[in-house]
C-alpha cells in the first residue's frame, strides 16, 4: 500500500482535515475537526469496509482527545481519527447510527471522562456502581478538576 498516495487522495476527498501523519510502521493518524467525524467514519466503515476497533479517550492539556481506531485488514494498517473536544463543552455526535458495535465504548467514555454523546440510544451508566457520585470522572486529570 502506497501511503503517500493514500494520504494525498484522502486530503483531496476531505480538504478540511488538519493533519495526516504516519506515527509508526503501518499506523496512520489523521487529525480532524469535530465536524468531519461522521463523514470519514462513514467513508471508512461503510465505504472501504474497514473494521472498527475501539475509541481511545484521554484528557490532555488542550481538551478531551478522542481517537477512533479502524483497521484495514487487507493491508494490516491501523487507521486512527484524532479529534479534540473542549474541556468546557465536551459534546460529540454518537456514531451508533453507522457503527453498531460502538455503543459500549461510547457509554464507557461517558462514565470515565464525562464526554456527552448526542443521540446515543442508551445513555445509561455503564461501568460504575449505582452509588457512584454523579460528577466524578476518574480519568480526568485531578489538578484541573480542582481548578474549576
Amino acid at each position: 500500500m502506497n501511503i503517500e498516495k493514500y494520504i494525498e487522495e484522502f486530503k483531496e476527498k476531505f480538504p478540511d482535515i488538519i493533519k495526516a501523519e504516519v506515527v509508526n510502521k503501518k499506523r496512520l493518524m489523521v487529525y480532524i475537526p469535530k465536524s468531519l467525524l461522521k463523514d470519514i467514519t462513514d467513508y471508512w466503515f461503510t465505504g472501504l469496509q474497514y473494521r472498527y476497533i475501539i475509541v481511545s479517550a484521554m484528557d490532555s492539556k488542550d481538551g478531551f482527545e478522542l481517537i477512533y481506531h479502524f483497521s484495514d485488514d487487507r493491508t494490516g494498517w491501523v487507521m486512527s481519527l484524532n479529534l479534540m473536544l473542549s474541556h468546557d463543552n465536551p459534546e460529540i455526535e454518537s456514531m451508533t447510527s453507522i457503527v453498531y458495535g460502538i455503543e459500549w465504548i461510547e457509554r464507557e467514555i461517558m462514565d470515565i471522562l464525562g464526554v456527552k454523546f448526542i443521540d446515543h440510544p442508551k445513555p445509561n451508566r455503564f461501568l460504575f456502581a449505582e452509588d457512584w457520585p454523579e460528577n466524578e470522572y476518574p480519568y480526568r486529570r485531578k489538578i484541573r478538576q480542582e481548578d474549576r
Binding site: V23, N24, R27, M29, I53, I54, H69, S71, V78, S80
Partner: peptide, 15 residues
C-alpha cells in the same frame, strides 16, 4: 510518542 499494538489472542484481536 504514540504506540499502537495488536495481537491475536485465542479469542481474537487484543488492542
Amino acid at each position: 510518542g504514540i504506540g499502537i499494538g495488536h495481537a491475536e489472542a485465542p479469542r481474537g484481536e487484543v488492542f
